[in-house]
Amino acid sequence: MKKFFKTINRDSVLKKVLKFYYNNPGSIDTAESIAKWIGEEESLIAKQLEYLMEKNILNKDKSYAMVVYSYTQDKHIIAAVKEFMEGEGRD
């Protein structure tokens, strides 16, 4: 996870997406909607959502017409993200 958080620090959009889910853990939405909430390009957000999904931070759900992402339920990952985000706040 440490390596992953270093990557996050180098990518502002990735950090924004992570922060969004940290602040709104109950959110289940499409890349299009997340892009609107965050105020970034949909294509950029879609890429970062996929990346966070590969890292098990997000879950992905599919139906015929849509792909949606939601925050992990894994308490260890949630705790690690919390620690990282709170550390960010102290900076």
């Binding site: 959110s27 939405d29 499409t30 909607s33 909430w37 759900d61 139906s63």
Partner: peptide, 20 residues
């Protein structure tokens, strides 16, 4: 904002459960 995000999620859930 949190309410709007929650409503958007509810709408997504609606679409997901209606698709089966």
């Amino acid at each position: 904002r949190p309410r709007a995000i929650a409503l958007s999620s509810v709408h997504t859930v609606h679409r997901l459960i209606s698709s089966t």
